[in-house]
């Protein structure tokens, strides 16, 4: 009996994200960091040339990473490797797919390549994760074929406040939809600027149809525990680990705190002796036009 073998299906793309739940995905810029992340229990690494804190400090146009560097990280670890493409830059995404990365982050951390359109993600076999600040934005990304959503937060700051705002916003909008009568959902779809079918599905099920991670400013085990309690399915940590005093210990601590987010004794225990956290920037001190959360729409 022969059976059809299908790759790149919605179930395989979204299912991959389901398997990352409860885990921590860490930004790494070289093989050494990737191995530290894997040893610490990261569920995946995000290979990029500069962590968001450095992108912020150095300025300039920020692009997809060097393929050689991505290759080396893929060869060095056995956990999934993700990489970032610029918003709308489908050719960068094609390159990343050809390198064999396991997930592409169409990311506002890089300089957008297209200020009108995001990547048509349905065309790819590799799955995509996209950032969102609210439910409408999340559903627009799903409409374009994203298989996983993360809050945007404000990357490279170590300031968790925007991640909190976005997570609360998305969760409260889902809750609001699920309490609506069916005749109100039509207007809700208009207000959310998202397709009616997807809005109706969220209203009916009371949840996003994909995994929702948090990202952007998570720097400590307690940050991770708070975001998980606010309803995140898992955590992206960017600059927070390798811009801190003791990356290996901190990576391990954030992994523990993400799993045991509901147990303050564990979070307290792993928070001890971590040394310096990354030097943060208050989001409020960043000029509005330098904020990354407004990239993507």
């Amino acid at each position: 009996m022969a059976n059809e073998v299908s790759t790149g299906t919605g179930r395989v793309k979204r299912g991959m994200a389901e398997m990352l739940k409860g885990g921590v995905i860490m930004d790494v810029v070289n093989v050494e960091q990737a191995k530290i992340a894997e040893d610490a229990g990261a569920v995946a690494v995000m290979a990029l040339e500069r962590v968001p804190a450095d992108i912020r400090a150095e300025g300039g146009v920020s692009r997809m990473s060097d393929p050689d560097m991505i290759d080396k990280i893929i060869a060095a670890v056995s956990i999934p490797v993700m990489a970032k493409a610029r918003i709308g830059h489908f050719a960068e995404a094609q390159v990343l797919e050809s390198l064999g990365v396991d997930y592409i982050d169409e990311s506002e951390v890089l300089t957008p390549a297209d200020y009108s359109n995001h990547i048509d993600k349905w065309k790819f076999t590799v799955p995509f994760v996209c950032g969102a600040t609210n439910l409408g934005e999340a559903l627009r990304r799903l409409t374009e074929g994203a298989a996983m959503i993360r809050s945007k937060g404000e990357a490279g700051t170590g300031d968790v406040s925007n991640a909190v705002t976005h997570m609360r916003k998305i969760r409260s909008e889902v809750l609001r939809l699920s309490s609506m009568s069916t005749d109100e959902v039509y207007v809700a779809a208009k207000e959310l600027q998202a397709p009616y079918d997807l809005v109706a599905e969220v209203a009916r099920t009371g949840t996003l149809p994909t995994v929702l991670f948090t990202a952007g400013g998570i720097a400590t085990p307690a940050d991770a525990a708070m975001m998980m309690q606010l309803g995140a399915d898992g955590v992206f940590v960017g600059s927070g680990i390798f811009k801190s005093g003791n990356p290996a210990e901190r990576a391990n601590a954030v992994v523990q705190a993400t799993t045991h987010f509901d147990n303050p004794d564990v979070v307290a225990k792993v928070s001890r002796g971590l040394g310096e956290a990354m030097v943060g920037i208050n989001v409020a001190d960043i000029p509005v036009h330098h904020r990354l959360e407004d990239r993507g729409w």
Partner: peptide
């Protein structure tokens, strides 16, 4: 890797 992830009747 993920690119080779698949569904198939078994």
């Amino acid at each position: 890797r993920q690119m080779q992830s698949f569904e198939s009747g078994i």
